Structure formats: C-alpha cells, structure tokens
Amino acid sequence: MSAVPAPDTAPVRAAGCVLWRPAQGADAETGLGIEICVVHRPKYDDWSHPKGKLKRGEEPLAAALREVEEETGFQCLPGGRLPTVRYLALGRPKEVSYWTAEATTGRFEPSHEVDRIRWLPPDEARAALTRLHDRTLVDALLEHLDPPV
C-alpha cells in the first residue's frame, strides 16, 4: 500500500508559460528576435511569468493556457515543456509546470490579479523578473526555440 501525503504537505500544483512573440518595433528592425511577456502582480508587487493553480481535475497544460489568457489577455500556441519549478510558498511546497508558448491574438486588460504586462527582449525580461527561478526559465525558453531566435 503506498503512502498518501498528508493534505497539508501535498504540493500546491500550478502551471504557466513563458510567453513570447516575434520582436516588435525597433527590435524587429534590428533583428533581435523575440520579446518575452512578464506580468506584474500587485498583490505581491513582483514580476513573473503568467501562471496559476490548477483547478480540480484540470490537466497542467490546459491550466497553463487558461492562466496565460486570464492574466495577459493573449491566446497562444503551446510549445515545448520547460523545467518544473519547485519551491516553498507560505511554508507549503509548490510545483509549477511550465511550457513555451507563442502569443497569437489578444489584448491585455488590467485586473486585480495582473495590473501590468511588459514585452521585453530576453536580457531585459531576465533582469525584470523578481525571482531567480523565473529568470532561469528565460534561458530554458531560448534553448528550446528551434531554430534559435
């Protein structure tokens, strides 16, 4: 018989995407490749990738795509799987599954959950992200894109 973790020690499951698009404006003219979307969450006053908790019975990729659209207003095409990030959140283990995702259509509308987004070149996105584990996902995205941009 396998042991089931106690409810208070089971990891909180979440999913998200490192959302990107081909460079716009001056970056497109200089051939700098892509821009990455970072979101500002006023509740935590941080910059992160769009992500959120899974709903009961929801598959991680479906949750990631839902969260991207809820937080950024953009629909996207999912790509490759990125590393799963594990950390403690309010004393509980949290596990966030990530994918690459190319933005397709949509428009951002501020909400209580995300009040701003920024589309930044990879180096600027890395610098803007609050947490180290979010910064490493930028590198993972760049390694995943094929052909590299």
Rank of each mutant, 00 (worst) to 15 (best):
Thr30Asp: 07
Cys37Val: 09
Val96Glu: 08
Glu95Ser: 07
Val68Gly: 00
Cys17Gly: 13
Tyr98Trp: 09
Val96Arg: 05
Thr104His: 04
Pro60Gly: 00
Pro121Glu: 05
Lys53Gln: 10
Val38Thr: 10
Thr30Ile: 12
Ser111Ile: 09
Trp20Tyr: 12
Arg81Ala: 11
Ala15Trp: 00
His40Pro: 01
Pro110Tyr: 04
Leu61Asn: 02
Val12Ala: 13
Ala62His: 12
Glu69Ala: 15
Val96Pro: 06
Val4Thr: 12
Ala128Cys: 10
Trp99Phe: 14
Arg135Cys: 04
Ser2Gln: 08
Pro78Leu: 08
Val68Leu: 11
Leu65Trp: 04
Lys43Ala: 10
Pro50Met: 08
Glu109Ile: 07
Ala28Ile: 05
Leu65Pro: 03
Pro5Asp: 01
Gln75Ala: 13
Glu124Val: 14
Gly33Asp: 08
Thr72Glu: 06
Cys76Ser: 13
Val114Glu: 00
Pro22Tyr: 09
Gly73Phe: 09
Thr105Lys: 15
Glu59Asp: 10
His112Leu: 08
Leu54Gly: 08
Thr130Phe: 00
Leu77Glu: 14
Val138Asn: 00
Asp45Ala: 15
Leu77Gly: 05
Ala103Cys: 06
Asp8Ile: 05
Ala63Glu: 05
Ala23Arg: 07
Pro148Cys: 11
Leu19Asp: 12
Leu120Arg: 01
Arg66Pro: 02
Phe108Arg: 01
Arg131Thr: 03
Thr130His: 01
Leu77Asp: 13
Ala15Glu: 10
His40Thr: 08
Pro42Lys: 03
Leu77Lys: 14
Asp45Asn: 14
Arg135Ala: 02
Gly25Gln: 12
Leu141Asp: 09
Val68Asp: 02
His49Ala: 07
Glu69Asp: 15
Val114Asp: 03
Arg118Pro: 13
Leu77Tyr: 10
Leu129Lys: 00
Ala128Asp: 01
Asp27Pro: 11
Pro7Leu: 00
Thr105Gly: 12
Pro5Lys: 04
Tyr87Gln: 08
Leu132Tyr: 10
Val12Cys: 12
Leu65Asn: 06
Asp8Lys: 09
Trp119Ser: 00
His144Arg: 14
Thr9Lys: 06
